[in-house]
Design a protein around this nucleic acid. Sequence first.
DNA 1: CGCAAAATTGAACCCAATCAATGTTCGTGG
DNA 2: CCACGAACATTGATTGGGTTCAATTTTGCG
Lengths: 229, 229
Amino acid sequence: MRQTEWKLVRALPLFRNVKAANFKKLMSAAFLQRFPYGVTLIREGELPDFLHIVVDGSVEMYGTDDGHETTIDILQPVTTFILAAVIRDEVYLKSARTLTPAQILMIPATAVREVFGRDATFARAIVSELAMRYRDLVRALKDEKLRTGAQRLANWILRADASHGHRHSVELEFDKRVLASRLGMTPENLSRNLALLTNYGVKSSGRDIIIEDASALKRFAKPNALIDG
Amino acid sequence: MRQTEWKLVRALPLFRNVKAANFKKLMSAAFLQRFPYGVTLIREGELPDFLHIVVDGSVEMYGTDDGHETTIDILQPVTTFILAAVIRDEVYLKSARTLTPAQILMIPATAVREVFGRDATFARAIVSELAMRYRDLVRALKDEKLRTGAQRLANWILRADASHGHRHSVELEFDKRVLASRLGMTPENLSRNLALLTNYGVKSSGRDIIIEDASALKRFAKPNALIDG
DNA sequence: CGCAAAATTGAACCCAATCAATGTTCGTGG
DNA sequence: CCACGAACATTGATTGGGTTCAATTTTGCG
């Protein structure tokens, strides 16, 4: 693994304060692998062998039932995934596939569990990470159950813009149908909802979404700190 | 606190293997309190002072947005709640109210964090608990996004029956409107969906739901181990 | 340039929310 | 113990958000 990736991973809250020896132990057991677009990394129902970390590219987490499929999360670098399954040594509840060519760091589950038992700092970081993820999911569930599709989209745009420094413009790094699934709607509906938001200061063309009137959008979206954090 | 409650709490996975001294420390700082029906125990947006444990009765966790409200979970004894907020020392994302007269054990957040730092066993138990809760939420989100209301109800009935030992009968311990909210539908729709399930071997009267033809219900519900697990 | 996949638009349909009215249950006080 | 009122539940009618199906346009890429 090159210096750059090492540093990126080392800087994660999960590893930041772990003793050097233990971090080295984790990394020496790990693989950094490159995947092309559209590769399934893990499949729901299987048992975890590795803790995964998106180092570059983006990854879609999705679940299926009876022929239907829904996106649960879209991960950007640098993020761990399937931590809960690794910790509990139980089957994945979600599948994962690359949305772009991606680099994934894979740390053997056994190594994670071992260092976890030995390094209290690491244990604490894992708890903190899990608790944060838990809270993200609570927010997602509230978003889904309490809002209409158009509201979810409006708030998603506001969040995405905020996470890119309030430039009043968001560029999608994946197809719109993925965003639609993430937002719990069909691609057709995403189109219609984007058209609707034209009335509230949002222009979209291709993969660019531009916020022309942030306050109008906010009035429509009614963002909520306890959902949109 | 009486012997019975002490034992109940001690038996929780979260505390089972904690050193006696540390458990005692937690308990000596804790309050066991009785609440009547309909009391709000915590409010979303507030900072956590205590880790809560339902010792007796049932508790509804719910979230709100823009005048709407949705039930996120219904807790039966013996269950901890708002662990994630306590761990991260961040505001609650959910509110909680009693659905029946209830006994709640409240452990000061500071004591939890202190023992957490000192007792590796406790830390590990918390990780395990959080990971389990995380997985429960993933299941809930898949349930919500991938199924129709009638399917969610059908699967809920199957799960509730299973958790009561497959007696082919479930007794609600709360109003139907709470179940409706938990299932992401209106009370009117719950009525209609219960009526619909008559066609699949489900009879309901008052707070009793009876499964007269489990295989017909299962054919309709299509339970999925990765959601209903 | 040409094809395949993605996105958009329109129409019909369906599931679910809302509104309204009626029936039922249950706790309370006479 | 019964009568009553309030909250809950059910049923019907209507509206609306959302999906599905189908056709067309646009985009991206070889």
